[in-house]
Write a protein that binds this DNA or RNA. Structure first.
Lengths: 217, 217
DNA sequence: CATGTATGGAGAGTAGAGCTATCCGAGTTG
DNA sequence: CAACTCGGATAGCTCTACTCTCCATACATG
């Protein structure tokens, strides 16, 4: 198919498709003449993946390009893909060096020790966790910070299931794609469900009748 | 203190402070003369909160203004604050109307029914959950979608603890602030810990020695 | 008390992100 | 053969989150 049909099939404007081509998120079609190209089902699929990562997962175009490059590059291991997808979904901050950060670093290291997690300070999540705890420290948010182990336990349970579900020893490319969608869309799903669960928990705790449309905007 | 000291105390540039004043994220200082104003500890605190929401929580300035307005407005209930904070952290998409969305809507409704959650379609999380499941449906991501109940159960556990930790019947304003930081920063913390837990789980499953710096970028 | 630096407030300017529009010469369709 | 569409390149646009400049004060220092 040519670009017009690709656009119709995916509900992405021709201009945007051309933009993604330029930015390297989407492979060029096969040229049949200097100004005519063929696109196939793989392009349809890729475009849907791009929109899912960007619209639903909230990735930037640059972030999406990064993780998609990992999907395409068969030198990239599942571990690397995991790290890249994580880096793409986490807020990046430049490091500060204060007491709060130091205390936060210690708290994370102790938690990892306590739970016996096999991870390192190079994992994007480690840095991000330290940043959050440091910010909470500066704000006096000790009640939230006190839930560190609650959160950690919940994520430990989730992560075990995710790894089982997502990895498949046979097909590398599909596996990497599942890892990426798992991290990005799974994260969005967790956020969404947390919102619903919180509304439910507070309704149950403080009376369902109090605010029937509670949580609506 | 005057604006210069406020800037030094918080590591936020004077120009940015003025911008936050203009955008209504930060209340004006008390004027002692037409071009001289006083700022106090509340301003320091608020600025730190702004930076935490924006830098660590990834909120936009408009999103931060929204949730901070809820903190300041004593007409806003804890329920409303919950909904506003949720809306600010979730990716907003315009609704599509296709088969995938319909199936996703059914899956969410059934899950809510099954678990007996007290929530409604008006909760921002509900819409977001439907969007994610629909995107997974379009991508053939059934393995991730199959974890819906795993995620839901984990979030159910987390939400219970969060509501207990965060709400305080006595001080409304502080409570609202805790709700907001809990949703926004707690969400960032969950994302970070999930990343670490995933690295750990995959290292444990597929051999820790395989990739010592696994997950690094 | 003169002189230099800081201040509040307003407006304009800036850089980057993510498209969108226009143009062109070359195919394709009816 | 006329009207449409294409691939590719470039320019332009809108929005966000600052950042800069200006000016008439105000405070601070010798």
């Amino acid at each position: 198919m040519r670009i017009g049909e690709l656009s119709r099939r995916t509900d992405v404007s021709v201009a945007s498709i051309k933009y993604y081509l330029r930015e390297g998120l989407l492979a060029p079609g096969e040229l049949t003449s200097p100004n005519q190209a063929h696109y196939d089902e793989a392009h349809v699929r890729r475009l849907r993946l791009i929109r899912a990562l960007v619209d639903v997962g909230g990735l930037s175009i640059a972030g999406a390009r990064d993780v998609l490059a990992a999907v395409d590059d068969d030198q990239v291991s599942l571990y690397d893909a995991l790290g890249r997808a994580q880096a793409a979904v986490m807020a990046r901050t430049e490091p500060v060096d204060d007491d709060a950060t130091e205390r936060a670093g210690k708290a994370v290291a102790e938690m990892v020790e306590r739970r016996g997690w096999i991870t390192s300070e190079k994992n994007p999540g480690w840095r991000a966790a330290v940043d959050v705890l440091a910010a909470l420290d500066r704000l006096g948010g000790e009640r939230v910070a006190g839930l560190l182990d609650v959160y950690a336990e919940a994520m430990e349970g989730v992560a075990g299931h995710e790894v089982e579900a997502v990895v498949d020893r046979d097909e590398r490319e599909r596996s990497v794609e599942r890892v990426v969608t798992g991290i990005v869309l799974g994260g969005a799903l967790i956020t969404a469900l947390r919102g619903m669960a919180e509304q439910s928990a507070s309704a149950r705790r403080y009376g369902a009748g109090a605010a029937p449309d509670a949580g609506a905007v």
